[in-house]
Design a protein around this nucleic acid. Sequence first.
DNA 1: CAGCTGATTGTTGGC
DNA 2: GCCAACAATCAGCTG
Length: 101
Amino acid sequence: MPKAAKGRSGKAEKKRSKKDPNAPKRGLSAYMFFANEQRENVREENPGVSFGQVGKILGERWKALSDKQRAPYEAKAAADKKRYEDEKQAYNADGDDDASS
DNA sequence: CAGCTGATTGTTGGC
DNA sequence: GCCAACAATCAGCTG
């Protein structure tokens, strides 16, 4: 696996700040859709487990799926991205319906 | 021209 | 309302 280390270097640091005025929130991620469905299943097989467990289990199950199984989730993610494209568009449009400002 | 980075998305669960 | 691991993302900016 090529490709130099990607974004998250490897630390569990979170931080997100604003930077754009309209900030076109990106589309969701395949994991988001997958979690939406598995969260029920995972929690059912792991009753009483706090997010810490479910969260990790969810991740394991996620990768446990076959590329094809994630396909539907990826598909949703792609569809969601589309939605984001729209926001991005408005972001570009600068919300100026009238060229004359 | 190419590569990186940051920002974001949603789950649960308690205070 | 926020925070945390878990995973994907991928669009935009910069040198």
